[in-house]
Simulated assay, not measured.
Amino acid sequence: MITDDSIIVDGNAKINLTLDILGKRPDGYHEVAMVMQSIGLHDTVKLSKIPRGIELVLDVPGLEADEQNLAWRAAQLLLGGEETPGGVRIELTKRIPIAAGLAGGSADAAAVLRGVNALYHLGLTQEELCAYGAKLGSDIPFCIMGGTMMATGRGEVLEALSPVPPFWVVLAKPKISVSTAWAYRNYDEQGTEVHPDNAAIREKIAGHDREGIASLLCNVLECVTIKQYPVIAQYKAWMMEKGALASMMSGSGPTVFGLFSSEGEAQSAAAYLEERTDADIFVCQTADKNHDEN
């Protein structure tokens, strides 16, 4: 929704259908190859024009509301120059859990970039917005575009894939937080023998083969995070017991997701997990590409 003085933009979470690490780059980042998928779980960002500066209002105690926050820094990228058209007040309603492997901070930054571009009629293309986003974080370009994407480089090089057939998604986020840097560092030390077959899953996605896609989920960081937090393996097992086509950890974790064919099965699995765990549980669907508001 957009008016002359304000706009409301959703920032969708993501899950990884695959995540492979190809090695360490000279710039210190890791070379990755992964299939990323938007889901319906989202934060809501309301942007309002103010004469100058950036104001950030959050509904999450303890979360930074200054230049440490990606949403604030995204606004600064577009409105921090001498010829800025004005300022912006950012009201952020969080639903995506923090430090969960779901790109919540990146989703917020992407929503701010898209929203400020529309609010001030800056005329930036999606490609230009992605270039801005890549300066702040590797997942932000994906969160700007959304949908089903093959991501390479450090995650910012994107290739659009066919939309996956719709899945219902159950998310279970344990009461733990996982540092992405910690996960990658430990992966460098131990590695894994099992890697995703990205070529095969691309074929299954193109063929809208629901079972084929589910059979090829693979995340090389699971071996690191599950070793430290075995509860992740337990959540996966419960998802499968309750009828998931597949279950996997997203990103560096700790959130576990299950893919389901029907809403009824998803809701049943969510209720089962709510009874047996203290995890934050969400039910949503896979989502298609974002659409610019301008």
Rank of each mutant, 00 (worst) to 15 (best):
T3Y: 14
D5L: 12
D5G: 14
D5N: 15
I7W: 04
G11T: 15
N12I: 15
N12V: 15
N12W: 13
K14E: 00
L17A: 02
L19A: 03
I21H: 02
L22G: 05
L22W: 02
L22H: 04
K24R: 15
P26E: 05
D27T: 08
H30D: 01
H30T: 08
E31K: 14
E31H: 06
V32A: 01
M36Y: 05
M36V: 09
Q37W: 03
S38R: 07
D43L: 12
K46A: 03
L47R: 07
P51I: 02
P51K: 04
V57Y: 07
V60H: 11
P61V: 02
E64I: 03
E67V: 08
R73W: 14
A74I: 12
A75W: 12
Q76E: 13
L77N: 03
G81W: 05
T84N: 14
G86T: 10
G87Y: 02
T93P: 01
K94N: 04
P97Y: 15
P97Q: 11
P97R: 03
G101M: 10
G105S: 09
A107Y: 11
L113T: 08
R114E: 01
N117C: 15
N117R: 08
A118E: 02
G123W: 08
L129K: 03
C130N: 08
K135L: 14
D139G: 07
D139H: 02
F142P: 00
R154T: 12
R154Q: 12
E159C: 01
S162H: 13
W168Y: 15
V169I: 14
L171T: 07
P174Q: 09
I176T: 15
I176E: 14
N186K: 10
D188M: 10
E189R: 09
T192H: 10
T192Q: 13
T192A: 10
D197E: 10
D197M: 06
N198D: 06
N198H: 09
R202F: 02
I205C: 07
H208P: 08
D209Q: 10
N219E: 12
I226N: 01
I226Y: 01
Q234F: 06
W238N: 01
M240F: 04
M240C: 08
E241L: 12
G243E: 05
G243N: 11
L245I: 06
M248Y: 01
S250N: 04
P254G: 04
V256D: 00
F257M: 08
G258W: 00
S261R: 12
S268P: 11
Y272R: 02
Y272G: 03
E274K: 07
E274S: 10
D278Y: 14
I281K: 01
V283G: 00
C284P: 06
D288P: 14
N290M: 03
N294A: 15
